[in-house]
Design a protein around this nucleic acid. Sequence first.
DNA 1: TATATAATTGGAAACGCTTCCAAACAATTT
DNA 2: AAATTGTTTGGAAGCGTTTCCAATTATATA
Lengths: 336, 336
Amino acid sequence: MATIIDVAKLAGVGIGSVSRVINGKDSVSDKTKLKVNKAIKALNYKPNQSARSLVSKKFNTIGIWGTELAGTFNSQTLRVIDHELITHEKHCLVTNGDISNLGNPNVAIDSVNDLISKGCDGIIFWGTDITHFDIGFIEKYFPNIVLLNNRIEKFDQKCFYFNHYKAGYIAGQHLVDNGHKSIACITGDFQTEDGRKRHEGFLDSMKDNNITVPSEFIIEGDYSFIKGQESVMTLLKRNLDFTALFCGNDQSAMSAIATLTSNGFNVPDDISVFGYDDNDIAPFTSPPLSTIRVPFDDMALAAVRYLLNTCYDLQLSVEHNFPVELIERKSVRNLT
Amino acid sequence: MATIIDVAKLAGVGIGSVSRVINGKDSVSDKTKLKVNKAIKALNYKPNQSARSLVSKKFNTIGIWGTELAGTFNSQTLRVIDHELITHEKHCLVTNGDISNLGNPNVAIDSVNDLISKGCDGIIFWGTDITHFDIGFIEKYFPNIVLLNNRIEKFDQKCFYFNHYKAGYIAGQHLVDNGHKSIACITGDFQTEDGRKRHEGFLDSMKDNNITVPSEFIIEGDYSFIKGQESVMTLLKRNLDFTALFCGNDQSAMSAIATLTSNGFNVPDDISVFGYDDNDIAPFTSPPLSTIRVPFDDMALAAVRYLLNTCYDLQLSVEHNFPVELIERKSVRNLT
DNA sequence: TATATAATTGGAAACGCTTCCAAACAATTT
DNA sequence: AAATTGTTTGGAAGCGTTTCCAATTATATA
């Protein structure tokens, strides 16, 4: 592979001139520019980024550390991130922190260190599967970080999160407002913080309305289609009397609807279903799903932009406020 | 940030020894190893990968060039790739070739060159949105590539693809076998090669069964939920008499089912629906969707492994054969 | 104990680039 | 024509590693 020296030789100039042409910021005469560009083309020369970043201390790459790199909506979010980065001529280096099966307890920190030593100028932490302690530790020697869908008071500016508690509360209140008093629940994954938060919010809305939710009405889910199905089956077997079902996300809501339907229940006439996320799927379940819109894409965009600003001295506008929005479709029946 | 020299000084050894300890392949005495490791910890030292790869010519990173980085199943596939890479201590650098809106016609080649000059040891080309000509050009100076869900005869070994033609044919035949003679179609995206191929296969199966499909029975889709809905609506408006609907993917099949249902048609009693992909969603539509299983994950795994083998001299087993599999669920009615 | 062999070690050279500085050249002013 | 100013240029130094070689130290053998 051709180096800058080859180009300089072929063009009959010094390496400094070649470098100047490549980077296009210092002044070079048109004559030199021409000669250099011709040589670059002739040799199919591509600057070696390792050498470049070794001296410039910039890698033009943002690391993404995530445990949420699966799931229907997340690829869309990843795309948003990538698109914004490419717009600013940066790249993204992806790493999946969630590799519990590799048997290394330090995987989280290790993979972050990898990202750092690989030269990432900044890192997006996506998800809550990293301890606050770890983040604090990392932030000390590597401050260019941002948290997506996670919140740590200490770094509030660097956090881009959604008020899942409030959203859960609003969802519950909405069901109550529609006359529901007996509500079952397939929660999100309690392993994740937002899964817990939205459930807390839901529970508190019940409490504030003097409604008790017996524990057999609650099943801990994990956001998957299959778990939604299974949970409905156990709920049905328990022979409980509920008029509404609050699901931890749209996926489980969807399979819940399908399972309910194939078991002879009409949604929403017999049982109302309420989702969470406002996925791509939500408008296309039958009936279309009422849900909470979580503006993941907006959050992701804001997070990248914040990082872009701090890493490369840009001035992109950054949103920090992501309001809870309730989307009413057809899956909740008004009982009043 | 601490460098290898700092570590050497603190440990009271030469930089060579530090390097040897880090890389753990040359012999070092236990005493030295201990001193060095202590210093590394004390300084929170992380080797600079740019410097490393500058000399070693290895970056331990695989580039992913893709235009298919959205969609329900793709994030799962990305996860498979990432997981396999991490298992072998490699990373993935993701770039999205599909940024048509940036207005640069050379985006494809440019973004690939970026990946190369950034030091990627190999590249996965994911999708068909790059011309054979471009691939040929790139392969000449950068042979460590692999094509996922794409086929170019010349590089057959490096291609990991699925026989979409055959799958389309089998899908059509299955509908015919179940007594369907009047079949409508919401195709995949004809912009993509596999969208075209599966449609060709379908059409040929019709021809071989002496069934003509009038053009008003065919609507070009784009794989999206919304397009599935719209297409069903236009089909319905045209007032055609069809007993089955073949969809270009599961997403459009799902929204087609929902739309059909909400318009008073029972699936499959009135109209049968057949999908394509065997997504996560497929088992959870109502009724559960009969479809073609496309083993994206297996293909992706094989592709990474092939690349891993060529880039890093490994000997992982690599599958090259991905059979077409028809998944029968409940969305196709037997008319015979 | 002296010698031959093996294991370990330190540090120079090289990787390909950017940046800086002094030198060369050009344009302008006196 | 000489002096001043401004523009462009070449190439040395340095970025933080790995790798190599010669030198040192430890071990085994006679």
